[in-house]
Write a protein that binds this DNA or RNA. Structure first.
Length: 228
DNA sequence: GCGACAG
DNA sequence: ATCTTGTCGC
């Protein structure tokens, strides 16, 4: 094999996985997902985001827990780890999940719901980062991505709250949601223990004055450079 | 073979 | 994701 593929394989080896094996694992794990509502009363929602400070080879995961009723911050946690997997479209979770799980474990109490930065089922094998993190942590999870990985949808009305199903190969894999009038839509999809309808409901409930949910905005800052 | 491609 | 200031547009 050439030098590049050799390097990718060695990095992936930290997970004992080649990209091909990772795809196979996604298909296996996807069978265990719960895609209907199996969650209790939601009082706290956690925003999860990952950052890569100055390309220094480390992955920083930030988790911020907010109260659903007033979106005030309850608790936050950060975890850093050496980056052990390259960015490969469709395999994002293998890069972000390890640090995210560690940050979650540092919370004094698990949140009732996870709002992840990235896709849930709106993924080639229906197993985006929100599915991976939700399944491994066993916490209901929703994927809220800033851009599209795959799928098509009908034209979206310009006003806030407008949404359309996101489809791929004849199935609905998520939805595009206009979080603010005229802005680029959000790509919302179930991660684990949540239906699409419920995913849209809680994503809308976390919206404040900006395009992105407050949960991910706060987590963004923590995962960013100048903090921690 | 030629694009597309979460973060 | 990250590199980075001012600038075009509503």
């Amino acid at each position: 094999m050439d030098a590049d593929s050799a390097k990718r394989r060695s990095v992936a080896h930290a997970w004992n996985l080649t990209p091909e094996e990772a795809r196979g694992l996604q298909k296996t794990l996807a069978e265990r997902l719960i895609l209907n509502d199996q969650l209790g009363p939601v009082q706290t929602v956690a925003g999860v985001d990952i950052g890569f400070p100055r390309g220094r080879g480390i992955t920083r995961a930030a988790v911020v827990v907010l109260r659903l009723d007033d979106l005030s911050v309850v608790e936050q946690a950060v975890a850093e780890e050496p980056t052990r997997f390259p960015y490969v479209p469709g395999l994002l979770s293998f890069r972000e999940v390890p640090a995210a799980l560690r940050a979650l474990q540092r919370l004094s109490r698990p949140p009732d719901l996870l709002l992840c930065d990235g896709q849930g089922t709106a993924h080639p094998r229906r197993f985006g980062v929100a599915c991976h993190l939700g399944l491994l942590s066993d916490i209901p999870a929703i994927g809220v991505a800033k851009s599209r990985l795959l799928g098509e949808h009908a034209p979206l009305a310009r006003e806030k709250g407008a949404w359309q199903p996101l489809r791929d190969k004849g199935e609905t894999i998520g939805a595009v949601l206009r979080s603010r009038a005229g802005v680029r839509p959000l790509y919302v999809s179930p991660g684990h223990r949540v239906s699409l309808e419920t995913a849209l409901h809680y994503t809308s409930a976390c919206l404040g004055r900006y395009r992105l949910p407050e949960t991910t905005r706060v987590a963004d800052r923590l995962a960013g450079d100048r903090s921690a």
